[in-house]
Simulated scan of single mutants.
Amino acid sequence: DVYSTLPVIRQRVLKVFGLNEPGIAELFRGLKGEIGDVVLGFYPRFPENHVTLSLRGADEDSVSAELDRVEKNIRALLGAHVFGSENDTMAGVVGEALLEKGFTLGLAESCTGGLIGHLVTETAGSSRYYRGGVMAYSDEVKATLLGVSRTTLERDGAVSEATIKEMAQGVRRLRDVDLAVAVAGIAGPGGGTEAKPVGTVHLGLSVAGETLAGRYRFWGTREQVKRQTAYMALDWVRRYLHGDPFLPGS
């Protein structure tokens, strides 16, 4: 087997969010004739999925050129679902986008309990764009610190579009930032209702003159719901700054 004796072996990794393994497999159908000898693989790294491109060849230049060609096709196929490659992290990519746009970030977290802020500050130098957040777990903190109307809380509840918009607007004012994100939800295992089952999460994003909101239903353990929520919040920032549409909610 001549192929197995070729001296140069290289692999690349593309990191994907918002597309599961069956979804990736479906998109990859019919690609066989377009990828040459490149071997594609994908594996979960919750809540991400990683796509690998591997190739052996006779020399570095030809291997790199072929991987470049196939990677370009894969990126075009997966679109904005690809958030990074190799050692990139979602929070790190978001930080780079904030710096590029000259935006500062503030967070209002309820169900995630500070997880989004933790992920953001895992990146060295995040103080250049992250001003801080409010861990507004109780309705009292939502009202007194973020300025959420008590009428809104009583009428719509803490996990609602109206409340999440006011949370996002409130933390943007409080932290004096260009862009603010707020999350509130029911992480479980209890606390759900027929109208708002466990896993229901509302996200809000506020910038000057515009506040956006969305609702999602996440599955899994309490920890998994919190992690999916944190990633989705960061993905909203990434997509907003890049001009890409948000992932559809429930």
Rank of each mutant, 00 (worst) to 15 (best):
P248W: 13
G84M: 05
G157A: 12
R128N: 13
T193P: 08
T123H: 10
A97Q: 14
P44C: 12
V82R: 00
H202R: 10
G18L: 06
R150P: 08
E194Y: 03
N20Q: 06
R175V: 15
E96M: 10
V183F: 10
G92S: 10
Y216Q: 13
D176N: 13
E109D: 03
Y130L: 03
G95C: 11
P245K: 06
Y240F: 15
I186D: 14
R10M: 13
A76M: 00
A108W: 01
L205S: 01
V177H: 15
E140K: 12
V94M: 13
M90F: 01
G199M: 13
G125E: 11
L107K: 00
E60G: 07
R10C: 11
L19D: 02
A108E: 02
G133R: 08
T200S: 12
F246W: 13
T163R: 05
G23F: 03
M135D: 12
T221H: 14
V63W: 10
L146V: 03
H202L: 11
N87Q: 13
L174S: 00
W219A: 13
A58Q: 12
R128T: 08
D178A: 07
A124P: 15
I164V: 15
G41S: 14
T211P: 05
F28Q: 11
V207E: 04
S127A: 12
V141F: 07
A76C: 02
Y43K: 14
R128P: 12
G41V: 09
G33N: 07
L14Q: 00
T52A: 05
N49A: 07
M90R: 07
K15C: 03
E100G: 09
D244A: 10
V159C: 10
R56A: 10
L19T: 00
